[in-house]
Design a protein around this nucleic acid. Structure first.
Lengths: 386, 386
DNA sequence: GGCGAATACTTAACTTCTTCAAGTATTGAT
DNA sequence: ATCAATACTTGAAGAAGTTAAGTATTCGCC
């Protein structure tokens, strides 16, 4: 914690103070003490080294809120530009990268195509993308010390090991170590959905929620879970596999071997396939299907309705099982979210059991860059809680 | 912690040492230190007051295990008879009670019928059952200081409040306080499924599992979850509602408003109803249905097969979503577990995604007394972690 | 404009818990 | 008998937090 050791980790109180200010915004020391169950003296002591290191600073006294009398509070706030973080999402055919500040605001972005799934080839491209990001970043480059990588698959965040990546055909690749050697940065690796969930938990709508769920809708249907304030990892590398819940016993066959899975109804590929059947146009794209549905093509519209209903069922299963405080539904698939929204909600409310139906749902599209921001968010977390 | 204060709560290390010895059995101080990330000096100091109070004691040195040389370890073990706990399960028509020692071994049991769901009437019966249990208990009665109550419904464990109990038609009954007044004991109240899960987590097959699930099969189908070592509570009083997951879109209507829920196929009532249809005997009981199925009645057998398959689907949903380390399937409904076992496993393995199928399944019947033992287990926990 | 009540923060002494380093204890092997 | 290995204990030192008694700043009121 003392000199610029590259981490903010310290005594429990210091970590708690920093994460609270980081995720919940400017707060006075007294409010922090109440919130964290500490004495205000403890907060003062915990905050000082963080201020000295430039991670926190005092805001000017705010307007009065209480009865009126008394010294005004000087809230603690994060110096967002104290440190910057690279986040890179690895997909089958591209790398998407961003530079974020401590508060996960994007300051620059870049992307590179990916043609070869070979480990060495990917590492070379990651190196180039990092150079591109440094080039595009207008701020102080010496403050960029960490890189977060996110990709789908079974990943061990603690060791940076990619146990299995289906689309890159990787098994047991020590990606964290390799990328650290190549870039000289401190690297974190995390599953993409979990990274996005972490970002939402610390910097998005999941802030303050004891438990919450993030559902991503796109080619696949994924789900990240936070329960009791902690990300759920799954003992066998599986967690949040909402995509292959059966929601319609009479539904189509799914590549997973089941029938009527959420993904086989609401996955982008499934929607396209179904829209092609209904229009008789074998070359139809997802964008064209969306346009037809919006234009009022009844049968294509029904494909989206059915998809929304399936997603609602899947979400209801999550709500019934773990009872999250709130749920965010997002993903590229929701670019056409006007076609889904009401159907997801209706279906969710019908399937959710009892009070679980009260769980607030946020349904919104997700710019692809957000995935990279998720990777950066994990990197930010690694600064605070190593 | 000092005199017989009625709790074992103390500094973090002491609590950790005690719970570890309690749940994982005799361990040497050195092993505890390694296990808990403490220095062995800290374990020595944490253990001393626990030994002085009679909660722990030293076992004779065990046989050598390592390379051979060195002083043999003197493992710490729990004095199970240092304290006793009452556990009472409240059902719609009966109270079932047990007396357990610190290790949750049953030393006595009793039951009383319940005819009136009125709060006062139930409290009177609880008082009588407690007297019965004291009467039946052969040990030192002064060491019985705590009572755990378990019942189905929405319960706030921290305050002992029954927010809603469907079968007793209670709303916001401060059962913990009322029962404490009447019995003079320290009372804990918990949802029955969660209590059973807690028991399994500390004293059963869930010991040592970072996350695990307990599925109960009976009139209702319930599920208790432990994730990241902590019981999942659900933000809106709902968690583990596995019973109303849709597993068969073409299934029967369910009282919850859905179709093809697990409970509408595998709940005891559903099984009986289906067996009556297939036999044309409107008075058929569940025991007769089991007998027919065991006797080879094809169509009744098929009812159980379908039920097992539905349960397997529900379990797979849990495995896919939260990835527990292991799953226990239990409940009165599994008295006929020979009719279910293989179907549950087959269905689970088909529906579980990827490595989640590796999650070990324990399928076993559950004596009704176990529910009361669950209540006692929560009471034991309250001694350690208030 | 000065005074007191209210609130926010700081400081210093003290408490509690833990580790560290240096013991003691007990065994098997040579 | 001695030595190495392992288990446990002890006392001093350190870290992290609390309590209690300051200081700082504001508002309302006379």
């Amino acid at each position: 914690m003392f000199p610029d050791s590259g981490t903010v980790a310290g005594p429990p109180a210091a970590t708690a103070v920093f994460t609270t200010v980081l995720t919940e915004g400017p707060v006075s020391r007294v409010a922090l003490a109440r919130r964290l169950g500490l004495s205000s003296a403890a907060v003062t002591k915990a905050a000082r080294p963080l201020i000295d290191l430039g991670y926190l600073h005092e805001l000017a006294a705010t307007e009065r809120t209480g009865p009126g009398a008394g010294r005004p509070a000087s809230p603690l706030a994060v110096r967002a530009e104290r440190a910057f973080f690279l986040g890179v999402k690895i997909t089958a055919d591209a790398l998407i990268g961003v530079v974020c500040d401590l508060r996960a605001q994007v300051h620059a972005s870049a992307r590179r195509p990916l043609t070869d799934p070979d480990v060495e080839a990917v590492l070379i491209e990651v190196g180039r993308l990092v150079d591109d990001l440094f080039g595009a970043f207008p701020g102080d480059r010496t403050r960029v010390r960490r890189l977060g990588l996110a990709l789908s698959g079974d990943i061990d965040r603690t060791t940076g090991l990619v146990r299995y990546s289906p689309f890159l055909h990787w098994r047991d690749v020590p990606l964290g170590r390799l990328a650290a050697q190549r870039t000289g940065l401190t690297v974190t690796v995390e599953n993409d959905v979990k990274a996005l969930t972490a970002a939402e938990h610390w910097f998005g709508e999941g802030v303050g929620a004891e438990s919450f769920a993030l559902v991503t809708v796109g080619t696949g249907i994924g789900c990240g879970l936070v329960v009791n304030g902690r990300l759920v990892s799954g003992s066998y590398g599986v967690a949040g596999e909402i995509g292959h819940l059966t929601v319609d016993g009479a539904g189509p066959d799914c590549h997973c071997g089941g029938r009527g899975c959420v993904e086989s109804i609401a996955g982008t590929d499934a929607i396209v396939a179904r829209a092609r059947e209904h229009t008789g146009r074998p070359e139809l794209t997802i964008d064209e299907a969306v346009a037809l549905a919006r234009g009022g093509h009844e049968r294509v519209r029904a494909v989206f309705t059915r998809a929304g209903t399936a997603i609602g069922c899947g979400i209801a299963a999550v709500a019934n099982l773990v009872g999250p405080t709130r749920i965010v539904v997002s993903g590229e698939g929701l670019a056409a979210y006007d076609l889904f929204d009401s159907h997801i909600r209706t279906s969710f409310e019908r399937q959710a059991f009892g009070a679980a139906a009260r769980c607030p749902l946020s349904i919104r599209p997700l710019p692809f860059e957000e995935w990279a921001r998720g990777a950066a968010a994990v990197s930010i977390q690694s600064l605070v809680v190593p």
